[in-house]
Computed example of a mutant assay.
Amino acid sequence: MKEMKTLMIVNVLCVAAMMAFLAVVGPIIRALKMEEWHAGLTVALAGVIWVVMARYWGKKSDRIGRKPVLLLGVLGVGFSYLLLAVFIDYALVNVPTLLLSLVMLVCVRGLIGLFYAAIPAVSSALIADKVDAKNRTGYMAKLGASNGIGMILGPALGGFLAVYGLHVPLYTFAILPIIAAFLVYKTIPKTPKHHVEEIPHPKWSDVRLRLPMIAAFLTMYSVITSQVCLGFFILDTLALEANETAKVTGIILSLLGICFIVAQVLVSKIKGCSPHTWLRLGGSIAALGYVLISLSHTVIPLGLGFCIATFGMGFIFPAFQALAANNVSELEQGAAAGTVSSAQGMGMIVGPMVSTLLYKIDPIVPFVFAAIAFALLVLFASRKVQVESEPSLV
């Protein structure tokens, strides 16, 4: 698939842009005399809009073609980020009222989320268009690895550039999606338009997408749970000092990014395994990792548990994307990819709320819950009516 390199570059640059904001949002909130919950609101809004818009963009790409929707999404991210950079640049010198700062951050961040929602959905649909069912998992894994690189590169580069001014990372990461849009325009061929208005798109309740959606939701929920609860768990269970906690948290989160990338590269290299196989294997490994986390009282087993769990989830990500593509017809690929992407967005929203509530019961409860959930996912995948040897519908 000759478009794969472009898709990987586009996803690296756009995910890096989305994640770079997290490196500077705290200092920006302080500089604008805002409160912590304002930062939470601006970040959470991206997840809400992802849920609402991913399915829309997927269906839109089914009708008018993948290239125009992907190009619009990437350009939209770039110019929305540029608007954010211009506002922050101005606001840091002339601090506006609290209401104006909040409205601008929420609206512009929401605009970025609106356009970004098109990128993962259309990227997955384009792979489903070009790659046969047997090889889709490997290509989805390559796409997932590029997302993992962006997740590491964004905060790291954003934090480095912030020493030159809080507005510098924002201007930088506004340029990167615009470069990505140029690559899309030059290298992604036009795809034919389909008149599919009369064909019903898969619904949220579509039985064909039930397993991929459950896997997508659970995996993203667990990723967010790990990110949100890790620091608290180290403070409360390992009883480290605040500075040491920050150091250990940063190291473990960096290792998780590496494990996520390595797992998906491994999936892309191993041929012949079906999405169901990767789903069951990944779920089993993730469950084992969360059990180890729940039993940890020192740094090394805790870090090892998180690495094992993340490694397993790295297997699951390309599996549910490929499984969704294999279970629907050619004309439904965009809608299916958008629906599963929406389930991921829902995990981003539910994860912080549920995991922190469970944490109040006991620090190990969020991780025990995740272990049980992955075990049930493996059981559900194993008992699925559709056997792995059944021919694809595509």
Rank of each mutant, 00 (worst) to 15 (best):
E3A: 10
K5M: 06
A23Y: 00
A31F: 00
A31Q: 11
K33L: 11
W37N: 07
W37E: 11
V52Q: 04
A54R: 06
A54K: 07
P68W: 06
L75P: 01
Y81Q: 09
L84W: 01
F87I: 04
Y90R: 10
T97N: 09
L98K: 13
V103M: 14
R109S: 11
I112P: 00
F115N: 11
S124V: 13
G138L: 02
G144S: 04
S146Y: 01
I149P: 01
G165D: 08
F173G: 02
A174H: 02
P177F: 03
P189Y: 08
T191E: 08
T191S: 14
H194S: 05
H195N: 09
H201V: 14
K203H: 08
P212K: 12
M220T: 10
V223C: 03
Q227K: 04
L240R: 12
E241D: 11
K247N: 10
G257Y: 01
V262T: 12
V262E: 04
K271T: 15
L279A: 13
P301K: 11
G312N: 08
I316A: 14
I316T: 13
Q321D: 07
A324D: 03
N326F: 00
A335N: 07
S341M: 13
S342Y: 00
M348G: 08
S355Q: 06
F367I: 02
I372Q: 03
